[in-house]
Nucleic acid binder design. Structure first.
Lengths: 352, 352
DNA sequence: TTGAAAGCGCTAACAA
DNA sequence: TTGTTAGCGCTTTCAA
């Protein structure tokens, strides 16, 4: 249906070969001829057929991007960063949403392989078996994991240091004198969540505080779930003077629940979050949060993928996988403050 | 490089034709043969080449999605909704970000046409000339505009009623007794922004309030810009008792600026926003906002595109374009309250 | 029920 | 500098 190279050839009175050469900027084309070809192609509205081109070149100029929830601000930013790098490199982006579902992930990999994407950037869905689909895909094309690690995976991956980031948050609270520090995180069996949770516990232990299950809330849904779960948490463990919220998307719900419980932030309860989305800076009070360098990860992953596409030998068999780990850092705002010691009698003249 | 249908044919001792028929579920294939083909294909890890298939069928099974900023939560949701519909229909999604730049939009359309997308869903970039690239594309393939209208465009489009939505917001403030109502909106020459702005003014006029330019702030960047601009606005027009914020992404900045100016919400300044993103529900105070039915628009646009792909005759030449207009509705939360009349003396016993 | 052959639109040898 | 030809992997007639 659309205009083909034959149409241009006929119209310009040349062979299809010459059209192809002229349009692709190949040498050995008379300047005047090239001019004429370009003009004719433009006049006819000719746009080359990528599929036909791919058939012969073996290259599709397309990479796949698989995320688990494109509406999540973190993935939206990730997508935005990846898209920018790929567009500049002349690659198209085929998007697929696994929705945290391994079966969808498998379907997505198949779909993307049908499209002969030259590489794949993926946030792995939870298992079981975690990462097996992506590992299988990696035998056929370059695959870069993003944000979540798969245990013992030989695949390239880019992310940030969830352990260090979570410790930063908890240590900040400890340094302020807090001991009864609660945890609010997602209930997802993926590495990023697990690592932050483990780091929270480890940081407590290192400060000689025993982690307690009843100080923790694991929520399924985002903001709404966090609201409910935090309310229950504060009922269950009223002694908590601080909360580590493992993900910014939960933070608004947590803040609302704390206020609903009649506790002031940070005076009664300090809150540190993880992510540093826009919401953190403009929450009330502005959230102290661990900045997650999303853009950095997106750019690094995308560029690594481009490098692997261009130099397949980068992934020598048996060579250790490439790993990019961005360092999160703490952004102190106004949702954290010194622990108010309620067991110590107030000094004279001190306000309650 | 990958396994081809020939490899499967050789391995199974059949012709490529039979392989194709068996794999595509065509009739007239012996059950045992089909079984053998499927097993062989699976064993070899055969995945059909979509490009080759497209060459002969003329269908690519791909649609294009062009947005102006995938990191914006509204577009992220839109993308998510579109992806869901397309995935269920067996279509792949090719993503392109115009970044509000008409030149990029043009490059994107070209790229997507090279990929022979069967249809295009697009949030039009601002002009000039607004929509000309998309209008040109529409002569070649089904195009559905989303969220923004292009004046006098013959293209199908889906969005919500920005005029009604903005009026809902302003009338809510008027009904609460506010008269000095300010406006904070983006500085983007696109219909959605313009319509909300015009509706704000119209609603004031209809209530016999003269709109004043000094009551308005038009900001370039999102939250950060809103913070600064709102601060200036409140300095310039301290008499404002309410603000209509034309876009949720600006709201956090506005709230922060209002607080920074020492004004309480809603006691001193009421705030209504537009969008109803997560941020609105969990802001402090929870934002009264006009709910923008993003998912509804995404679904409607995607389904319309599918319908047009399947039945090209839906777009009869000269027929009026399809238009889907979802109705926004007001969600009253806690950021709005009655106007406190400072010029009227307090009644005895009334609290200040 | 299966096979042979044509051809989708294009690029890349190779010839002229 | 330009034209001719082969063929990428697949589906679709048409024959067997």
């Amino acid at each position: 249906m659309p205009v083909t190279i034959h149409d241009v050839a006929r119209e310009a009175g040349l062979s299809i070969n010459t059209i192809s050469r002229a349009l692709n900027g190949k040498p050995d084309v008379n300047a005047a001829t090239r001019e004429r070809v370009l003009a004719t192609a433009h006049r006819l509205g000719y746009v080359p057929n990528q599929a036909a081109r791919s058939m012969v070149t073996g290259r599709t100029g397309t990479v796949g991007l698989m995320v688990t929830d494109p509406a999540n601000p973190i993935y939206a930013r990730l997508l935005s960063g990846v898209e920018a790098v790929m567009r500049r490199a002349g690659y198209s982006l085929l998007l697929y949403n696994s929705g945290e579902d391994p079966a969808q992930e498998q379907a997505g990999v198949r779909s993307l392989r049908q499209s002969r994407v030259e590489g794949l950037l993926a946030v792995p869905a939870p298992g079981p078996p975690a990462g097996s689909t992506l590992a299988a895909a990696a035998t056929e094309l370059p695959v870069i994991l993003m944000l979540r690690q798969v245990p013992d995976s030989p695949l390239d991956s880019a992310g940030w240091d969830n352990d260090a980031g979570a410790r930063l948050a908890v240590q900040h609270l400890l340094a302020l004198g807090h001991r009864a520090i609660g945890y609010v995180g997602q209930d997802l069996p993926v590495s990023s969540v697990r690592v932050r949770h483990a780091a929270y516990r480890a940081a407590l232990v290192e400060a000689s505080v025993s982690p307690r299950p009843e100080w923790e809330a694991h929520v399924r849904l985002a903001a709404a779930g966090a609201y409910t779960a935090t309310g229950e948490l504060l009922d269950r463990a009223p002694q908590l003077t601080a909360l580590f919220v493992a993900n910014d998307v939960l933070a608004p719900g947590v803040l609302a629940a704390v206020r609903r419980a009649g506790r002031r932030i940070p005076h009664d309860v300090s809150v540190v979050s993880f992510g540093d989305l826009d919401v953190a800076a403009y929450a009330d009070p502005p959230l102290t949060t661990v900045h997650a360098p999303v853009r950095e990860v997106a750019t690094a992953a995308a560029e690594r993928l481009l490098a692997r596409i261009r130099q397949p030998e980068l992934a020598a068999p048996g060579a250790p996988p490439w790993r990019f780990t961005a360092m999160p850092y703490l952004v102190v705002r106004e949702s954290t403050g010194p622990a108010v010691t309620t067991t110590t009698p107030h000094l004279p003249g001190e306000s309650p």
